[in-house]
């Protein structure tokens, strides 16, 4: 199938190096300590953060750092076909783990020993790149909750179809079966915290694709920073400063 036409446009009218439209909103769940909604095109996820709080299960308590827990799930209505997905399936477990590890790497856990941080992410609408969207939403929610972090973590995916590196694959492109590289970076520190690919790709092309995804992450980081700044301004305004 042709994913990039000879005019250089993708199926949805983007060019290969273009991301989908981003939208983010902080404070979607009032009860949570921090929450956010993050959209990348038609992919929409919600994240809620609780903590740091007392460890619920004493046996899991860590004495020198905080326990980070993460739960990923997909809403039953998130895909077109109303299939009931059992909770805790392999895919969800894997993504939960990925998100937890990524977030753990940037949270300053040693500042909050013997406590627990819960991150809940749920996909409201899935159109490819849910993993990245969840990480971005979780970052925003953690920032909203005021949890100390080394840097913002942002994530973006890139693929390689029709011999062209493509940024931010949507569902149609994602299900084409080509390689899909998901990268998570700490933009200020310029460090990679997440790198996933489940396909074969020659190393030189892989580098290009990964570079592209990292560029995407940086663009997302800029956007998230703007959103946070805007949010802080709002908070300042409300406090009447």
């Amino acid at each position: 199938m042709e994913f990039v036409n000879p005019e250089g446009l993708r199926l949805d009218g983007r060019r290969p190096m273009e991301m989908r439209q981003l939208r983010a909103e902080i404070g979607a769940v009032a009860k949570a300590d921090g929450s956010a909604v993050f959209e990348m095109g038609n992919t929409k996820v919600i994240a809620a953060v609780y903590g740091p709080r007392e460890v619920q299960n004493r046996s899991q308590q860590i004495n020198d750092q905080a326990l980070v827990r993460c739960e990923y799930s997909m809403a039953n209505f998130s895909t077109g076909d109303r299939r009931r997905k059992p909770k805790g399936d392999r895919r969800s477990t894997e993504i939960s783990l990925v998100i937890r590890q990524t977030m753990e790497a940037c949270i300053l856990t040693h500042l909050m020993p013997r406590s627990q941080i819960d991150i809940y992410v749920q996909v409201l609408q899935a159109d490819g790149g849910t993993r990245s969207a969840c990480i971005n939403a979780a970052t925003l929610a953690l920032a909203d909750a005021g949890i100390p972090m080394r840097d913002l973590v942002t994530s973006c995916s890139a693929g390689y179809l029709n011999s062209t590196p493509l940024l931010d694959l949507n569902y149609v492109e994602d299900s084409a079966g080509g390689p899909d590289v998901t990268v998570g970076i700490l933009p200020k520190l310029d460090k990679v915290t997440l790198l996933q690919m489940d396909a074969k790709l020659p190393i030189d092309i892989f580098e290009n694709v990964m570079q592209l995804a990292a560029e995407g992450c940086k663009a997302i980081a800029n956007y998230i920073r703007e959103v946070l700044l805007e949010n802080t301004k709002q908070l300042e305004y409300r406090r009447g400063l």
């Binding site: 009218g13 095109g41 077109g80």
Partner: peptide, 27 residues
């Protein structure tokens, strides 16, 4: 400018599915 395209499609299983695709309109 963002637009979305909605259309119905019959799946291989014979069910009708509603699909939503983004369309990015360019200048």
């Amino acid at each position: 400018m963002l637009h979305s395209k909605t259309f119905n499609k019959k799946t291989r299983g014979g069910r009708i599915q509603k699909l939503v695709r983004e369309v990015y309109l360019r200048d």
